[in-house]
Each structure stands twice: as C-alpha cells, then as structure tokens.
Design a protein around this nucleic acid. Structure first.
Lengths: 138, 138
DNA sequence: CCCTTAATGAAAAGTTTTTTCAACTACAGT
DNA sequence: ACTGTAGTTGAAAAAACTTTTCATTAAGGG
C-alpha cells in the first residue's frame, strides 16, 4: 500500500475517491500545482471532485507530510508530493520542474551561527532554491 | 534624506504622502505586516490612504528593494523594511518579531553542492528561519 | 507659480479561500 | 454480505484578497 494511504489510515482518516484523485495528480506532476490546477486535473479521474475538497485534502495531506507546499514570488500555494524526511525544493524558473534536495550540514552550521548572532532559538526553516534545470539551460 | 527616498527619486518616482505613510509604518514595525494592516496603521498618519495604493506602493518598494516580502505558513504577504544588500529574515513564531541575517558562506557552499547534485543552475533562493526570540524563550 | 504627468482613491470586477449544511459513503461491527 | 454511524463530500454562498478602471489630485521641474 502506498505510503500516503498508510499514513491516512494510521491516523484514522478514510481513503476516499477524492483523496485518491488529489494524490494521483500530485504523484504524477513534477511541477508545483495550485489548488485550482489540482481540481482540473483531478476531475479527469474523479468527475465529482469539488474545489472545497481539494483545499481540505491538501490541508490534511500537508499536515500528514504527504504533500509539501512551495512558496514562490507569484502564487504562494504550489503543491508537490513530498518524500519522507525533511528536504527542500529546487524549482526551475523556466519550466517549473521541481527537484528535491537535503539540507546537508551547511544549513545546520548556518543556523547555529544565526542563533549565536541573534539570540533566537531557531526551530524551523523555509529554504527554496530556483534556477534553470538542465534542459532549460540550452 | 532617508535611503528609500533617495532610491525613489533616483528612479524618477515621486515622494508622496501615501508612500511616506507606508514607509513610516514599515520602518516602525518589527513584525511583518499585511497590506491591510499597513493600510490601517497608515491611515493614522495619512487619512485618505487607500488599499489600492498600499498594494501599488508595496510592489514598487519591493522592486526597489526598500521592503522585503516574507512568506509564512499562514499568509504569504508579510512586509518588512529591508536593509541594503541581500539578507534573510528570521521570525519569532510567538510574537512575530523579525530579525535579519546574512547568508554567510555556508549558503554558497550548500548551493554549490546542490548544483552539482542536480545539474540545475541556481540563481535565486528563498531562506527564512523561524523560532523563538530572546524574550519569548522565557 | 504654472504645467505636465505621475500618482491616487473609490468603485467595480475578478480571484481565491472559507463557511455552511444536507446528502453521501467508507468501513467497523454484526 | 449487510447495516449503522461518523467521517467526508460538494454546491452554494459568504468572506477575504487582489487587480483593473478611470476621473481627480498633486509632486516637482521649469
């Protein structure tokens, strides 16, 4: 059983046609999608899908860390499926294609320095990179 | 003359009461403000200020790098004044107070590694930290 | 102190997100 | 399999947010 289904069940949530439609769409994309885009594509597999349900499903799946929300200059609600563990998004500014990467130790070092410099106790971070993917460089 | 006024003039933009109101509000805050909050506070110094103008002014000031837009889980349009040069925001999740920090070399190293790992050519990044400020830790 | 033109604000239009609520259905227990 | 029930859904409506339009205002060079 796919991972997201396990997580829903484990927390007592039901596997419904709408949730399947939303996850199917997200698992098939390599570009962050907005709720409206997810609705449109999702209707191809589940005709009755409604926008409200897309919003609710995304909120739930984000909470369970099955999907990740990416922020961009335009539109702050792009969704991507996310692999287990903490990772970050790297988005092509030309075609939108997204890749994931890990934070490595550099980020820990940076955070430690910032904590020292500011006195804040840092417990979360938002890091996204953008640029050109291999295909778009030519 | 304050820096933001210089930048506006230098690019041929006018120093108006509305723009002064928006910048005054931003320079006085340590918490990211939404366009609506800026409108409300701005009206205390410039009665006729309109919401449309706040949006337009923020877009302009952001373009000129006099203000910075911060993204958060809730609401993706928080504005802060920004110091010259590239820096990042660190926001207290309790009181909202923001601090700035520089990217240091760690970030460059991280980006270089990601470029190597993914083949992308990285040319921009969005980095924000959140945690507890000194006051909120007690 | 004019004049030109950038800038403004109110209203309206367009979007996005949330709330409400009756109907539906996944699935645990029978 | 069948059934009951509580979690889910989707349409409509409300609320919130952002952009467009356009007549009026005023910044600042001459």
């Amino acid at each position: 059983m796919s991972n997201w289904k396990k997580r829903l069940s484990a927390e007592g949530f039901r596997i419904t046609a709408s949730r399947r439609a939303v996850m199917d769409v997200l698992l098939a994309t390599s570009v962050p999608l907005s709720p409206r885009e997810i609705l449109e594509q999702g209707r191809r597999v589940h005709r009755k899908l409604g926008l409200v349900t897309v919003y609710r499903t995304l909120a739930l799946l984000e909470h369970l860390r099955c999907v990740r929300r990416v922020h961009r200059e335009d539109g702050c609600r792009g969704y991507l499926p996310c692999s287990p563990g903490h990772s970050h998004a790297l988005i092509c500014r030309q075609c939108g294609r997204a890749a994931e990467f890990q934070g490595f130790a550099d980020l820990q070092a940076l955070i430690a320095r910032v904590e020292e410099a500011t006195g804040y106790q840092v417990d979360d971070h938002l890091l996204q990179l953008s640029g050109l993917c291999l295909d778009c460089q030519s």
